[in-house]
Computed example of a mutant assay.
Amino acid sequence: MPLQDAAALAASLPLAQAMREHPWLYPAVETLHIVGFALLVGAVAMFDLRVLGFGRQLPVRALARHLLPWSAGSMLLVLPTGLLLFMADPAALLANRVFLLKLALIVLAGVNALAFHAGPYRGADAWDARAPGRAVLHALLSLGLWIAVIASGRLLAYF
Rank of each mutant, 00 (worst) to 15 (best):
T31L: 15
P2Q: 11
A16M: 01
L137W: 12
S12L: 01
P132S: 04
A45F: 14
S142Y: 03
L83Y: 10
R61S: 05
A62L: 09
L67C: 14
L40P: 00
F37S: 09
G36M: 06
A18C: 03
H33C: 11
A109P: 10
S142M: 04
L39H: 01
L145Q: 07
A95L: 02
A115Y: 00
L25I: 10
L105F: 12
A7S: 01
L155D: 08
A126G: 04
L3D: 13
M1Y: 13
A113L: 13
L67A: 14
Q4E: 14
L58N: 08
M75I: 05
A157L: 02
L141S: 10
V60I: 07
T81M: 09
L77Q: 03
A151H: 06
N112Q: 02
V44F: 08
F99T: 07
P69H: 09
L76P: 05
L15N: 00
A95P: 02
H117Y: 11
I147V: 15
A95K: 01
M87Y: 07
G110F: 08
A45E: 03
G119C: 05
Q57Y: 11
A126S: 11
A124T: 00
S12Y: 00
G36F: 04
L84I: 11
W70G: 12
R122I: 04
A28D: 07
A11S: 08
A151V: 15
Q17G: 13
R97Y: 03
Q4Y: 06
A109D: 08
G36P: 10
A8W: 00
L9T: 08
P80K: 00
A124I: 00
L13R: 05
G133E: 08
L83V: 13
L68H: 13
I150W: 10
L83D: 00
L58K: 03
L103V: 15
F159M: 08
L114P: 02
A92D: 10
R154S: 11
L25K: 05
